[in-house]
Protein backbone atom coordinates (compact mmCIF):
# COMPACT_ATOMS: atom_id res chain seq x y z
CA UNK A 1 0.00 0.00 0.00
CA UNK A 2 1.25 3.47 -0.83
CA UNK A 3 -0.41 6.85 -0.91
CA UNK A 4 1.16 10.05 -2.19
CA UNK A 5 -0.14 13.53 -1.45
CA UNK A 6 1.44 16.35 -3.41
CA UNK A 7 0.99 20.10 -3.13
CA UNK A 8 2.59 23.02 -4.90
CA UNK A 9 1.68 26.48 -3.58
CA UNK A 10 2.92 30.03 -4.06
CA UNK A 11 4.44 31.15 -7.34
CA UNK A 12 3.83 34.37 -9.24
CA UNK A 13 0.18 33.46 -9.55
CA UNK A 14 -0.27 32.10 -6.03
CA UNK A 15 -2.26 29.18 -7.40
CA UNK A 16 -2.28 25.88 -5.58
CA UNK A 17 -1.82 22.66 -7.53
CA UNK A 18 -2.46 19.45 -5.63
CA UNK A 19 -2.88 15.75 -6.05
CA UNK A 20 -3.66 12.74 -3.91
CA UNK A 21 -2.93 9.30 -5.32
CA UNK A 22 -3.54 5.84 -3.97
CA UNK A 23 -1.24 3.61 -5.99
CA UNK A 24 -3.85 0.86 -5.85
CA UNK A 25 -6.09 3.01 -8.07
CA UNK A 26 -3.49 3.37 -10.83
CA UNK A 27 -2.75 1.02 -13.73
CA UNK A 28 -0.02 -1.38 -12.54
CA UNK A 29 2.71 0.04 -14.76
CA UNK A 30 2.12 3.61 -13.51
CA UNK A 31 1.94 2.46 -9.90
CA UNK A 32 5.17 0.54 -10.41
CA UNK A 33 6.91 3.59 -11.84
CA UNK A 34 5.82 5.80 -8.94
CA UNK A 35 6.86 3.21 -6.35
CA UNK A 36 10.23 2.97 -8.04
CA UNK A 37 10.65 6.77 -8.08
CA UNK A 38 9.88 6.93 -4.36
CA UNK A 39 12.39 4.14 -3.63
CA UNK A 40 15.11 5.65 -5.82
CA UNK A 41 14.69 9.07 -4.22
CA UNK A 42 15.52 7.53 -0.85
CA UNK A 43 12.43 9.38 0.35
CA UNK A 44 12.28 8.12 3.94
CA UNK A 45 15.99 8.62 4.59
CA UNK A 46 16.56 12.03 3.02
CA UNK A 47 18.19 14.47 5.40
CA UNK A 48 15.81 17.13 6.72
CA UNK A 49 16.30 20.35 4.82
CA UNK A 50 16.92 23.50 6.79
CA UNK A 51 13.93 25.84 6.55
CA UNK A 52 14.56 28.75 4.22
CA UNK A 53 13.20 32.25 4.00
CA UNK A 54 10.49 32.13 1.35
CA UNK A 55 11.66 33.24 -2.10
CA UNK A 56 9.48 35.97 -3.55
CA UNK A 57 7.24 34.26 -6.12
CA UNK A 58 9.00 30.94 -5.64
CA UNK A 59 7.00 27.73 -5.51
CA UNK A 60 6.71 25.75 -2.28
CA UNK A 61 6.36 22.02 -2.56
CA UNK A 62 5.18 19.39 -0.14
CA UNK A 63 5.25 15.67 -0.82
CA UNK A 64 3.80 13.15 1.62
CA UNK A 65 4.31 9.44 1.17
CA UNK A 66 2.38 7.03 3.32
CA UNK A 67 2.81 3.23 3.56
CA UNK A 68 1.44 0.64 6.01
CA UNK A 69 4.36 1.20 8.32
CA UNK A 70 5.49 4.76 7.89
CA UNK A 71 4.67 8.26 6.70
CA UNK A 72 6.75 11.27 5.90
CA UNK A 73 6.24 14.76 4.49
CA UNK A 74 9.04 16.67 2.82
CA UNK A 75 8.76 20.43 2.29
CA UNK A 76 11.02 22.23 -0.14
CA UNK A 77 11.32 25.33 -2.28
CA UNK A 78 12.66 25.83 -5.78
CA UNK A 79 16.19 26.47 -4.62
CA UNK A 80 16.57 23.82 -1.93
CA UNK A 81 14.68 21.03 -3.64
CA UNK A 82 16.58 17.73 -3.26
CA UNK A 83 17.99 16.57 -6.60
CA UNK A 84 17.15 12.95 -5.89
CA UNK A 85 13.47 13.92 -5.54
CA UNK A 86 13.23 15.70 -8.88
CA UNK A 87 12.22 12.67 -10.98
CA UNK A 88 9.35 12.02 -8.56
CA UNK A 89 8.40 15.72 -8.66
CA UNK A 90 8.33 15.65 -12.45
CA UNK A 91 6.00 12.67 -12.46
CA UNK A 92 3.66 14.26 -9.91
CA UNK A 93 3.64 17.63 -11.65
CA UNK A 94 2.81 16.02 -14.98
CA UNK A 95 -0.30 14.59 -13.32
CA UNK A 96 -1.23 17.66 -11.30
CA UNK A 97 -0.30 20.65 -13.42
CA UNK A 98 -2.89 20.65 -16.16
CA UNK A 99 -6.19 19.09 -15.25
Amino acid sequence: MMRIVFERTGGFMGRKVSLSIDLADLPPDQAGTLKQLVDESNFFKLTELPPKTPLPDGFMYSITVETETTQRTIHASDTNFPQTLRPLLENLLARARVR
Binding site: G11, F12, M13, D57, L93, A94, R97
Partner: peptide, 15 residues
Amino acid sequence: DKGYDNAFWDGQQMV
Protein backbone atom coordinates in the same frame (compact mmCIF):
# COMPACT_ATOMS: atom_id res chain seq x y z
CA ASP B 1 13.45 23.89 -15.48
CA LYS B 2 10.99 22.03 -17.70
CA GLY B 3 7.35 23.05 -17.72
CA TYR B 4 8.07 25.74 -15.18
CA ASP B 5 5.02 28.03 -15.00
CA ASN B 6 6.70 30.70 -12.98
CA ALA B 7 9.23 33.44 -12.41
CA PHE B 8 10.90 34.30 -9.11
CA TRP B 9 13.56 36.42 -7.41
CA ASP B 10 16.05 34.25 -5.54
CA GLY B 11 17.49 37.07 -3.46
CA GLN B 12 20.17 37.84 -6.04
CA GLN B 13 18.76 37.34 -9.50
CA MET B 14 15.66 36.87 -11.64
CA VAL B 15 14.61 33.41 -12.79
